[in-house]
């Protein structure tokens, strides 16, 4: 198993192999993501029972929670790709990191906006300085920072390494920021409702959530591979295999 993983890792470092294999994986990610998100949506919207305290607005968690999950794990993935780039100098890691950033920013945005919309019936305002929402907002700025840094720096190699370093510094800081924001929140406001952290959800409530989370991760793979494939072609357009590929069509 380990050997298989390391071989896969080394092969993925080759742009040509990545392009070929990602073409095979792409439909699978698409199918899994559409199926799971579709099932989760129908179940979550139509069949899951209503929360006795929050009413039907609790159904927003079926997009909010998976989006928040992805928002956080995509940043960690970006930092891991950054480590791979800086330590092993594997250029494909940067293609992945670059393709991850826009999906991560979108997911953070979704989590923020759905959290705010959920706040209207629950808290009675569009925005509350809730610890989770505030952390999510800061995460959104971290994504924007990495994206802006890549836009600003030239050449591409320097921008790649700089973004990798930023992502690593960010990952070290995120727990500190999260802890400090939680602490600040308890200092200033008594904890009221939070969107997540529900005590003991019945299966009819959490199974659709699980489906959505799986679907969202597959969606990430789908979106990521589409972006990465375009980027690989753009970066490798002078190499022989891209020319072969283009001439075949």
């Amino acid at each position: 198993m380990w050997k298989w993983l390391t071989t896969l890792y080394h092969r993925l470092a080759s742009p040509k192999w990545f392009y070929q294999i990602s073409g095979l994986w792409l439909p699978w990610f698409a199918v899994v993501s559409l199926l799971f998100i579709g099932a989760g949506l129908i179940w979550g919207l139509a069949y899951a029972p209503m929360d006795y305290q929050q009413g039907n607005s609790f159904r927003i968690i079926y997009v909010h929670v998976p989006a928040a999950f992805l928002a956080q794990s995509i940043y960690v993935m970006m930092a891991l790709a950054g480590v791979v780039l800086l330590v092993w100098k594997i250029k494909m890691a940067d293609v992945v990191a670059q393709s991850l950033a826009p999906v991560g920013a979108s997911m953070t945005f979704i989590a923020l906006v759905t959290g705010a919309i959920w706040g209207v019936p629950t808290w009675g305002t569009w925005w509350m300085w809730d610890a989770r929402l505030t952390s999510m907002l800061i995460l959104f700025f971290l994504y924007l920072g990495v994206i802006a840094l890549r836009e600003a720096l030239k050449p591409q190699d320097t921008a790649a390494k700089a973004c990798a370093l930023m992502a690593i510094v960010g990952v070290i800081n995120i727990p500190i920021i999260k802890y400090s924001v939680d602490w600040w929140y308890t200092l200033h406001q008594p904890a009221t409702f939070t969107l997540t952290e529900k005590p003991a959800m019945p299966a009819s409530m959490w199974v659709p959530l699980l489906l959505m989370v799986i679907g969202f991760y597959a969606f990430l793979g789908w979106s990521l591979l589409l972006r990465a494939r375009a980027e690989v072609l753009r970066r490798e357009h002078k190499s022989g295999w891209v020319k072969d590929l283009l001439q075949r069509k």
Binding site: I138, F141, L142, L144, G145, A148, L149, A152, M166, V169, G170, N173, I176, I177, Y179, S180, V181, W183, W184, L187
Partner: peptide, 20 residues
């Protein structure tokens, strides 16, 4: 502006504990 965008999020814990 870019530098501000990059660094300010990391200043938040310091701000929180300082004003705290």
């Amino acid at each position: 502006v870019l530098m501000t965008l990059l660094v300010l999020p990391f200043y938040i814990p310091v701000l929180i504990f300082g004003t705290g």
